[in-house]
Simulated assay, not measured.
Amino acid sequence: MSPADPVVRPATTSDDADLLEIDHVTWSPRWSPGTAPDRERDPAFFREQHGGPEGFLVAELDGVVVGYVGLHPAGNLASHAHVRIIDGLGVLPAAQGRGVGEALVRAAVERARAEGAAKVTLRVLGTNPTARRLYERCGFAVEGVLVGEFVIAGAVVDDVWMAIHLDR
């Protein structure tokens, strides 16, 4: 008997605690240039920084939320309305290697397509080759590299911009 495939669905406000936990256990300076989540400072996932649940999809395995992806408009300009950005992806360590990340990224791309987007972008740190390979499997390609964009824990880190064009 094989393990169940991930089920991806839109996030709801009732997912807040699960997504907050995923955010806390998956954060690392190897894949985020920002500050570590702080339960006292950030007691909820859906807050000003993340907005509401409408910009997120969650993945479940056997009815348990194990991952999320954020998909939002890339900007506020009308001339940029055709672009969406994946601006967050997290999968619980126990669920990694089971296709959850790929299911989430593919679902985000399909959601963007359904919304009429022509392009989906994302940023990934040069210190995260595993994520980069995931995005490449899902059809993303490097569009640019901001060399030395961050200094994290004393190390210079590149910011890799990737995209998939939905109208090609």
Score class of each variant (00 low, 15 high):
V66G: 01
D158Q: 01
L166R: 06
G90C: 01
H82Q: 13
E136I: 06
A11G: 13
A74N: 13
R84S: 13
G34Y: 02
R47N: 10
S28R: 12
L20F: 07
V147G: 00
A74D: 15
G154Q: 07
L104R: 10
P129F: 02
E149D: 10
R168V: 10
V100P: 02
R123E: 15
D42W: 14
D23K: 08
L71E: 06
N128G: 05
L20K: 11
G97Y: 14
V64Q: 11
A108T: 04
V91T: 06
D38F: 00
V156G: 01
L104V: 10
V124H: 05
P3V: 08
G75N: 11
T121Q: 08
G70T: 05
H50F: 03
T121S: 04
L146K: 02
D167V: 03
S79C: 09
E21I: 00
F45K: 05
V120L: 08
V120Y: 11
P29G: 12
H82P: 03
A114V: 08
E110Y: 00
K119W: 11
D23P: 01
E60N: 08
P10W: 09
D18M: 12
V157F: 07
L146T: 01
H50N: 14
V160G: 03
M1W: 05
G97K: 15
R113N: 08
L134P: 05
V100M: 07
L89S: 02
C138A: 14
T127S: 11
R111Q: 13
V157G: 02
T130C: 01
D38I: 00
W31F: 09
A107I: 04
N76I: 07
T35C: 05
F56V: 13
R84A: 14
T26M: 11
A131K: 02
V64Y: 10
I152G: 03
F45G: 01
V83R: 06
L71H: 03
F150A: 09
R9D: 07
V7I: 14
G67N: 07
L89E: 00
V58Y: 14
I86F: 10
A141S: 11
H50S: 12
A155I: 00
D38G: 04
G70Q: 13
V8T: 09
E143S: 09
A141E: 09
H24P: 10
A74F: 10
T26V: 15
E149P: 00
H72S: 14
L122C: 10
L20R: 15
W31G: 11
V64S: 05
R168D: 12
G97Q: 14
A108P: 12
A141R: 15
E115A: 09
E54H: 13
A36F: 01
A107D: 01
A36D: 06
G99N: 07
G70L: 04
P33H: 03
D87C: 01
F46Q: 03
H72F: 10
G101D: 08
V105G: 00
T130A: 14
S79P: 12
V91Y: 00
R39V: 15
